[in-house]
Design a protein around this nucleic acid. Structure first.
Lengths: 119, 119
DNA sequence: AATTTATTAAACCAATCGGTTGACTAATAA
DNA sequence: TTATTAGTCAACCGATTGGTTTAATAAATT
């Protein structure tokens, strides 16, 4: 997971993923839009590959790259955990407290007492 | 966005966000579970703050940290773009081609996307 | 007033990052 | 055969990262 988010933290690499979403691309094709050496782009692609975000098929002297969505799904899912915090800002506190109460498995930490807001 | 994914790329920081999802925490409370100096944890918290993922309220000598979900929503949304690639592997190519064709007009960005679920 | 507590600041370190250049390999084209 | 093309490798560079330790600051406690 570290590697996935790390790979996503560079806009060059995110652009490459976007391009791959449109269609498979060779290394040169992926590199073309970016103002850097081919070697630098090649390293970016390697980072994406090591994170499992792309797969590579060697065809003769060209390498055809293909988007691999699994890790993206995992990352998406991990962020989905926080969905409660951006859907309905006012509802959030209420929902959280209820879920926390329902999940009364480990409450050894100093959880602040839910104080009734009389607004 | 770079900063957000960069912040998310460290498991210590992801754990801190998880903790903050349960409740607001002070710097010491956030640092406690992690086998490192308080100064190191403090730097992690700074990274999260700079990425806009947490807000800090200074109360006397303690700093109370609060989860800020906006950037998480943005990241979630960005990854959501690739949802087509992990939902129904065989259907993907077909759907992509159709959506690409439909987007050729680019007239309205309505969120209505009724997909006939034939599983 | 003196001390403890919560936190940051500063200097340092080894490792990694994102980029460069130049040499190299292997497949294709002339 | 000889270039040309596609791509990687290796060495190097400056900046950043994630950690350390030792102060420093400011608030709370005694």
């Amino acid at each position: 997971m570290d590697e996935v988010f790390q790979a996503l933290s560079d806009s060059t690499r995110r652009q490459m993923l976007r391009d791959l979403a449109a269609s498979d691309r060779t290394v040169s094709e992926l590199a073309a839009p970016h103002p850097m050496s081919l070697a630098a782009a090649s390293k970016h692609i390697r980072v994406l590959e090591n994170a499992g975000l792309i797969r590579r098929e060697v065809e003769g002297r060209t390498h055809r790259c293909h988007l691999e969505a699994g890790p993206l799904a995992a990352a998406h899912d991990e962020l989905g955990f926080y969905e409660q915090f951006w859907t309905s800002s006012l509802n959030t506190l209420d929902r959280l407290l209820r879920e926390e109460a329902a999940q009364e498995t480990e409450s050894s930490r100093t959880t602040s007492d839910p104080q009734p807001k009389d607004d």
